[in-house]
Design a protein around this nucleic acid. Sequence first.
RNA 1: GCUGUUGUAGCUCAGGGGUAGAGCACUUCCUUGGUAAGGAAGAGGUCGAGGGUUCAAUUCCCUUCAACAGCUCCA
Length: 645
Amino acid sequence: MSVIKITLPDGSSRDYPKGIKGIEIAQSISEGLARNALSIEVNGEIWDLARAIEVDSSIKIFTWNDKGGKYAFWHSSAHLFAEALEALYPGVKFGIGPPIENGFYYDVDLGDKPFGDDDLAAVEKKMVELAKQNSAFVRSEVSKADAIDYFTKKGDPYKLELIEGLTDGSITFYQQGNFVDLCRGPHIQNTSPIKAVKLLSVAGAYWRGDEKNKMLKRIYGITFPKQKELDEYLFLLEEAKKRDHRKLGKELELFTFSEKVGMGLPLWLPKGTILRERLEQFMRKAQVKAGYEPVVTPHIGSKQLYVTSGHYEKYGKDSFQPIRTPDEGEEFFLKPMNCPHHCEIYKFKPRSYKDLPVRYAEFGTVYRYEQSGELHGLTRVRGFTQDDAHIFCRPDQVKEEFIKVIDLVLLVFKSLGFENYTAQVSLRDPENKAKYIGEDHLWDKAEREIQEAADQCGLVTVAVKGEAAFYGPKLDFMVKDALGRQWQLGTIQVDYQLPQRFELEYVGADNQKHRPVMIHRAPFGSLERFVAVLIEHCAGNFPLWLSPDQISVLPISEKFHEYAQKLFEDFKANDIRGFFDDRDEKIGRKIRDAEVKKVPYMLIVGEKEVAEGKVAVRKHGVGDQGSMLVNDFINLFLKESTPPV
RNA sequence: GCUGUUGUAGCUCAGGGGUAGAGCACUUCCUUGGUAAGGAAGAGGUCGAGGGUUCAAUUCCCUUCAACAGCUCCA
């Protein structure tokens, strides 16, 4: 029997007989590892533990603590789910059922049968029952003809469609119990480690992600090797929901919605407005420092403006419909973006190459008719304010300007403590060029410039095809919300198209006319979405400079109201925001209420404080800080509440 | 827009074919209390909207609006 060399993650290598299985390697290392092993990585591919290794390989054995282990575990759970579903609903047709970041889903066609929460519970029960049977996941290689034969007999059109796209010789089936699935694998060895099962929700999903296809039912679920781990996961999910900006926005009185005003049109409450205006002020200052000039443009624009920009052709039918005037044929659109307006500002006068770059910034409120199902708290709305700006520059200035914008975005993230963001280079979909305007060479140039600028800034980027705007590629900064959903915040876009469409020009040193390049950018993205993500990021505990209420003055009893009132006036005179709690309540109650409102500083005054000219300071979430002279507190506070810019 | 779920007081929710209930918040009174909920009384609802079935609908049915989860979309 020949021997192969197996290299372990620590770099050491051992000889094993050819055809050794992952599980046998695990056993040779330790009993514990063999017991916990779920899958194995062989030369970068994740395999079943029972698959024979035939050549010299580098391997890594995955347990529950590895992504690769969980992947196999949840993938197998999806198969277990399918087995249970088929047992309860004979004739169900299956789409795809992959593992995801947390758990798995399976797309199924149940015909016209309704499927709700009660059904989920029944399937859950069946899954647990089947898991106990300890069925092995058995891999088999099948020919394309046999695969087609099997699913034709079974009557599963979705699987047949998937097989169509596969090449003969690369097709594998997995079977556990009575259930056979077309599957690339890998899987865990058998069903017994799947101890705790929770089916989370039923949703619709288009077959192959195409709106034109039939909508299947997508069932989401998650499984764990131990009930305790499932309980912990569900608990964490509940905890995350407490950070939801929609919940906190209501509790902290930041914003609201009204059916009468219209869906997706946020109403900013006084406290939310303070927060929003602080952010706006921060950005205004940062932008002035970076050489931007503020401009203001109207909320509507004539149809012609958007015909010129190309937005009318692209989005006209799906936008808020035109506003008419008494003049026949005259039409205005609600402004869905600021760029065309800014182009017209650029055109206000002839430009010299010496004038460039010019940078026009506007907190521009725009209106977009998002599909009803897209609306989501403040993160996806129909009316929102972008911290927008357009930089008009010479082609030779593009990269430098782009880098400056990256710096600005990073300043925002740093100032607000966003550390976990993804920088995404959003490129054209090369398969579907009809979605975009403009010539190939300009796109290539813009895409290259973005990547180079990002690289120069040392950003780790992920390139995603098909995510570009219709007029140009983007660098998008993505941040996750409390429940792990990814949102785009900052965005920077290089655009060669609008300058052409608007016939923007500047006179070069050669006294010839040249075309400027436009950079669109919004470091926050929109104030609405940014505030939403910020709320979730800090769980409503805003940094002091942003906090709507920075302090609360809490007198121990009515006897100290006069002193407390004077104190409160002093704070106001120092631009310290907050409230004076003069309710007839005990101090414990006032403290509790202020804690619930997440007020950063509670200033308690009673007999001692009045006598000594002091305040007793309590910090939110921390506790009693002892007392100090009023002026000392003000100085300390002002130092701490200074905005980052 | 699509699939599924939900809509009862300002908020969180219970209830259920015979015109509604709790806790918190709110108002008034008592209480003047030192670091996370003092006590009492009171007020508050076209049960999302429209239609139907019924002697009777908040409850059952249909339509519609909105929210939630996901899909698709996102200038």
